[in-house]
């Protein structure tokens, strides 16, 4: 069976629908009203400004990480370390927020720059371990994730502990000037939103119009041939990791500077790993990433509300997104179901 072009374009929707059906079946199983539940999860937030802003505040770091991952995935790199890169970013921003005394715009500028540098450094480390130490980026990334997490715990409990005494919960709240200006009473910062939109443009140009993007693409598809065509795999690998690390670091900064107002333990909340799922669900297509990312934010926020209103556990949102990714991996490619693509032959 041959799939027409337009249908192929919309194929990513198919696993989403499949996962929704799965969730509806699950809701039935638990005796919940699927319609009402889905309504609470998906539609209710749109009626409530506070909820929407909360979704958007979550969307920003998730999208930033996903954008960075798009770059590393293009280069064929499984950058699991994005989680740690994000944590490092939050540490960098926290460091400035806790130690520097300056006007707000200087502080915020410094925080963002240092956060991006810290994330990039963590990414570069994974890249360097791969190119010079033959440590696969998955394992290097996992190790560095743990290390980043330990480092943040140490800082919270040690040097950056609140004056009233150390705890593992978090640092004291940052000075007001260090925080990103936020919209209304929410945790959503318009600056971070603008930066994310800029990042989307940057990644779009990097991947589609820069020579660097082309080199990454070649590297990701066939590293050997790319090397023979003159692409330096080592350099590009490290650059790609740094690029992703910088965006993830920015995401980390947004987390501490607008979501928590201080450095907390488990600052990333698994957003890095979630971003991997976003990119997979978006089938590595940039223009889908912001939407999938929004959808994820919506579902995860909605399931929290769901728990409050019904007795269903909030992990339902996690189940839904997880099932979706599994479905995408199972039959994300139309060809796996026996469809053939429309390809013109030039024989």
């Amino acid at each position: 069976m041959i799939l027409p072009r337009w249908a192929e374009r919309f194929w990513p929707v198919v696993p989403i629908i499949g996962a929704l059906l799965f969730i509806i079946a699950l809701l039935f199983l638990f005796g919940a009203d699927p319609l009402e539940s889905l309504n609470i999860m998906f539609l209710k937030p749109f009626e409530n400004q506070a909820k929407m802003l909360s979704v958007m505040a979550f969307w920003v770091p998730l999208t930033l990480c996903a954008l960075g991952l798009l770059v590393t995935f293009t280069g064929g790199l499984w950058n699991i370390g994005v989680e740690g890169q994000m944590i490092l970013g939050s540490l960098g921003a926290s460091w400035i927020a806790l130690t520097v005394d300056a006007p707000a715009f200087v502080l915020i500028f410094l925080e963002i720059i240092v956060a991006m540098l810290a994330g990039a450094l963590w990414g570069a480390l994974t890249g360097f371990l791969k190119t010079h130490g033959k440590v696969h980026e998955i394992f290097g990334g996992l190790a560095l994730n743990n290390l980043a997490s330990m480092l943040s715990l140490y800082l919270i409990a040690g040097p950056w502990q609140p004056p009233e005494g150390g705890s593992f919960r978090g640092t004291p709240p940052f000075q007001e000037a260090a925080l990103l200006p936020r919209f209304a009473e929410s945790r959503f910062s318009p600056i971070s939103f603008v930066l994310t939109i800029l990042a989307i443009g940057l990644v779009f140009f990097a991947l589609n119009n820069s020579f660097w993007g082309l080199k990454l693409k070649a590297l990701g598809k066939n590293a050997r041939s790319a090397f023979l065509l003159g692409v330096s795999s080592e350099r590009e690998t490290i650059y790609a990791m740094m690029f992703c690390g910088a965006l993830a670091g920015l995401g980390g900064a947004v987390r501490v500077l607008s979501w928590f107002d201080s450095l907390r333990q488990n600052i990333s909340g698994g957003i890095g790993y979630l971003a991997i799922l976003v990119v997979m669900l978006a089938a590595y297509r940039l223009l889908l990433v912001p939407f999938i990312s929004f959808f994820f934010s919506l579902v995860l926020n909605g399931s929290l509300t769901l728990q409050l209103k019904t007795q269903l556990h909030s992990s339902l949102g996690g189940i839904l997104t997880g099932v979706m990714v599994l479905f995408i991996l199972l039959f994300g490619e139309a060809s796996k179901l026996g469809f053939r693509k429309e390809v013109e032959k030039d024989e």
Partner: peptide
Amino acid sequence: RLEEGLVSKLSLTEHMLLA
């Protein structure tokens, strides 16, 4: 050819640019 030299899913233009 497709193992060492060409990249399957890249276009001819992209090959030219790289080379």
